[in-house]
Amino acid sequence: MNLQDLKYFHELVNQKSYTKTADSFGVTQPTITAAIKRLETEFGTTFFIRDQSHKSVNVTNIGMQFDEHVKKILKEIEVAQTEINQHLSEDILFGLPPIIGDEYFPKIAGKLLKANILKHLNVQEHGSHELKQMLLDGQINIALLGTMQVANNPDLKLTVLKKFPMEIIVNKNHPLAKKKGVFFKDLENENFIDLTNDFIHSAALRQLKEANQINIKTIYNSPDVTIVKSLIEQGLGISLLTSLSIENNPNLVALPLLDENQPEFILVAAARKNYLFKTQEQKLWDILEKS
């Protein structure tokens, strides 16, 4: 068995055509046929059945099952190649969500500078959901992520650093600003300004809506937390954000939610479980764990 045969196999599962598969690799159709024959002989089974009447290919059940394993193998090879290409670089491919980058990262930047790590950081700034996928794909190797729960992940190593409450953020002159806390169900008539789906805040908002069985009016979605806070400062609406995001902002007020089982913003350091840190990356990870 060779890697190229597996690539041919996976593409044939997707295309269900020997001709289209051959064209996508720039090879002849007999090349694809021979590769599939080698795999079927090696495993002693049939992965594909030709439908001569429709000139198409049907994938057997065992063929579909085998493809689940092939996809994982090809992904691991892709990530391994990316890691090999990165190995000689001193850069640390580091993921940082905007809120964490603005409000939390500056608190540890001094330690990173002292450890001679700061200059090696190649920062990729995206929402936590996208950064998690970038970790799995090998595009970054370490990240700070926000999550609502830390479940056992077979592919990622997660270390909890801090926990912050999710709170209702309002303008300091908003009628709600004088309250000590609010129940989410009492906000049904408010105008909400939400972050986009790449942020866990949006998932937390959906969770609260479902738990309280109410509809809310979202007047704007933004991928930029700075814009969200600016619109709240102008009195255009309210939002659900972590308390971390509005520290040292005198124009905004954070109201605790009084609901039971309310979501929280959990800050974690994340890396692939099977990734071996370079020296500088290990120093970074140690600082993150102790911060």
Rank of each mutant, 00 (worst) to 15 (best):
P250E: 15
P223F: 01
I238K: 06
P250A: 05
A203P: 03
G181Y: 14
F164S: 12
I219R: 11
V182G: 11
K180Y: 13
N197W: 06
N249L: 07
S245L: 04
N171S: 04
L236Q: 08
T226G: 05
E167P: 06
N189C: 04
S239W: 08
I216A: 09
Q234S: 07
K217N: 15
V182Q: 14
I200A: 06
L240R: 10
V182K: 13
N248R: 15
V160L: 11
P165G: 02
S243D: 12
N215D: 14
N212C: 14
V225T: 08
N249K: 12
A211T: 12
L195T: 03
S222W: 08
I246K: 06
S239P: 06
K179A: 07
K229V: 03
N189A: 08
F164Q: 12
T226I: 08
N212A: 13
T218P: 00
L241N: 06
N248C: 04
S245P: 06
F164D: 10
L240E: 07
N221I: 00
S202F: 12
G181D: 13
N251V: 00
K229T: 10
N251I: 01
K180V: 01
L241D: 00
I200Y: 13
L231P: 04
L236T: 01
T226Y: 05
I219A: 07
V225Y: 09
K217M: 01
D194F: 14
N212E: 15
L240G: 02
S230A: 08
E247F: 12
K209V: 04
H174V: 04
A211F: 12
Q213Y: 11
D198V: 02
L195R: 11
E190H: 01
I232H: 02
K163M: 12
I200E: 07
L176M: 02
V228A: 01
T196I: 03
N215I: 02
K229P: 03
L205S: 08
A204F: 01
K217G: 00
L236W: 03
L231T: 02
H174L: 04
L195Q: 07
V228N: 04
D186P: 09
S202C: 11
K185I: 03
I169F: 11
V170S: 03
L187F: 08
L252C: 06
L240P: 00
K163T: 11
P165F: 08
A203S: 15
L176K: 13
I246W: 02
F164P: 02
P165S: 08
N197G: 09
D186V: 02
V170T: 04
Q234A: 04
I227H: 14
K209A: 06
L236E: 05
E233R: 03
K172N: 09
R206S: 14
L252W: 13
L195I: 01
I169H: 10
I169D: 05
I232T: 07
P165H: 10
L195G: 02
